[in-house]
Amino acid sequence: MSGTVEAKLAALGITIPAATAPAANYVPTVISGNQLWISGQISVAEGKFLAGKLTGEADIEGGRAAARQCAINILAQVKAALGDLDRVKRVVKLVAFVNSAPDFTDQPKVVNGASDLLVEVFGDAGRHARSAVGVAALPFNVSVEIEAVVEFV
């Protein structure tokens, strides 16, 4: 049934934005076989960067919101590439980068913002392998960047 995923997103109050164009010399997605590889999506919403280095416990919720926005932006790229989010068979892998201070070690808690949304939207098909890595800086000083691999039909 077409539109099932979009109906779920609407029920969650989420509108999928238009997919953003690359900021440099790369493509936003690549299809290889039945897999869609999505270039890193940064934490940007309505033209505003969800920015800043995460430094402590107080930053986890803001980081989770930034990671959630990355997942929404990933869905925008999936929709642009496949035309229909219902074609997603499984979210295979996320690789997440968290702009964090050297002593910040809660990257997995931050990236749960993206993982939780994908599971909420796709159910068991949204469960994925994942890496959550702390980095010294990200483009535009955003808090989170996430790339993904999605299997589709």
Rank of each mutant, 00 (worst) to 15 (best):
M1Y: 11
M1C: 06
S2F: 04
G3E: 12
A7M: 11
L9I: 10
A10I: 02
A11T: 08
L12D: 06
L12I: 07
G13P: 05
G13Q: 04
I14G: 13
A18Y: 11
A24K: 12
A24Q: 10
A24L: 11
V27S: 08
V27W: 01
P28E: 00
V30S: 11
I31L: 10
I31H: 02
Q35G: 01
S39E: 15
S39P: 03
Q41L: 06
Q41S: 14
A45S: 15
A45C: 11
E46T: 12
E46C: 06
E46P: 02
G47Y: 10
K48A: 15
L50Q: 14
A51G: 13
K53M: 15
L54C: 08
G62F: 11
G62K: 14
A65S: 12
A66F: 07
R68S: 07
Q69V: 12
C70W: 11
I72Q: 09
I72W: 05
N73P: 09
A76E: 00
A80P: 00
A81Y: 01
L82V: 08
G83Y: 00
G83I: 02
D86N: 12
V88A: 13
V88Q: 10
V91P: 05
K93G: 04
L94N: 10
V95D: 14
F97L: 12
V98F: 03
P102F: 06
T105N: 02
Q107C: 03
K109C: 01
G113P: 06
G113N: 02
A114W: 05
S115Q: 11
D116W: 01
L117Y: 09
E120G: 09
V121I: 14
G123I: 05
A125C: 07
H128S: 15
A129Y: 13
S131F: 11
A132I: 06
G134W: 00
G134A: 06
A136F: 04
A137Q: 13
P139R: 08
P139W: 06
N141R: 08
V142C: 15
S143W: 08
S143A: 15
V144W: 10
E147T: 14
A148H: 05
